Amino acid sequence: MKNLMTKAAVAALAFGFATEAMATEWNVSVWGKRRAFTEHIEKLNELITAKTNGGFTLNISYGGLSNAKENLDGISIGAFEMAQICAGYHADKNPTLTVLELPFIGVNNLAEEVAVSNAVYKHPAAVKDLERWNAMLLMPSPMPQYNLVGIGEPRDTLEKMNGMRVRATGGIGQAFKTVGAVPTSVTATEAYNAMESGVVDSVAFAQHAHLAYRTVDIGTWWSSNLNPGTVNCPVVMNKDAYEALSDAERDALNSSIDESIAHYIAVYGEVYKKWDTVLAEKGVTTVTYAPEEIAKFKAAAADPIRDEWIAKMDGQGIPGQELYDTVMSALEAARK
């Protein structure tokens, strides 16, 4: 009996080690702290863990694996299997994605942002672009339109934006430059210190980021309706890691994307409710721009920057006009 028990114990232990060895854990590099911007990844982990009975899980690291601007590099060498990136942090590394950061392209809500992002992510040029980094696009992190939190006198006209130092990346930064502002591309985690030390006068973020990075804590005014554009921050995967998944693991991952995005959008709904309360509590002045001011901003930024972007892409052998048309077609289809 003792011998049989010993054999049973050894077998059970061996099975345990085998099970552990067969389990798949992906390291995921994000930054900051858990917030609305990362909730789809958290939900994705919850779903795939349940679907695989713990056989496939995500180890989500908030800044412990890489800084935000180097996540794509980390993916390329297999330092981790999944990451969030923002196209505007390194436009030269992912030029095709920057079409989604062009100013005033007309996206009105997160559902439309999901539609246009997915359309671009599936475009052969974007797929090829990311393959240079051994990366694959998994899902968007749909971001609301950016608006400013600033310090000092409210910049409530374009004329007052002349000389304003603003934390803004990608196409949004270019847009502000057209009206005389001075954009800088410090990362989100550096924004509070940049504002506090006077390096910038204002920061362009979506509401969740103004809350998460506390810029609203020291800001004195908020631009409620400028809506110059947004940034595009997809979740990407290491291609080799994805191809190494079992069929069941890959199905668990792919089948969880839509539910993860739906959860993300629902979380953002709660952020919107909280935002107005926080503005009132902090005594932040809300600036609402006159329609003629927004029209002037669009005239200065939208068409010239788009045309310049298309010409630049064409010069690099990238189908710029085709990518822009993909965005517009997806937007029209989403509205139908």
Rank of each mutant, 00 (worst) to 15 (best):
L100S: 03
D92T: 07
K43L: 02
Y272W: 07
V267N: 04
D217Y: 04
A68P: 03
V30T: 06
E293S: 15
N53M: 04
P142E: 05
F205K: 04
Y264V: 00
G163W: 10
E322G: 02
M143A: 11
N3R: 12
A300L: 11
S61P: 06
A175Q: 08
N94I: 02
D251E: 14
Q321D: 09
A18K: 04
E46P: 01
G16F: 11
A91G: 01
V267R: 11
W31M: 10
M22V: 08
F104S: 15
V199H: 12
E46W: 00
A12V: 02
K2Q: 09
V127Y: 01
I305E: 07
M22R: 14
N59V: 05
N162H: 12
S66D: 09
S117E: 02
F17N: 00
L148S: 08
A12F: 08
Q174I: 00
M237I: 15
S256L: 07
T24F: 05
K273E: 13
A300Q: 07
A300T: 09
R35F: 10
V10R: 10
A91S: 06
Y324C: 08
S246A: 09
A135E: 03
R132K: 15
A299K: 13
G269W: 14
A50E: 14
Y264E: 06
V278M: 07
S66M: 02
D201N: 13
K177L: 14
I77R: 15
S223H: 12
Y242P: 07
T169M: 11
G198T: 13
P154I: 09
N147W: 04
S197T: 13
E131I: 02
W309N: 02
A135N: 08
N45H: 14
E70Q: 10
E322P: 01
P304D: 10
A266E: 10
W31T: 08
P144S: 12
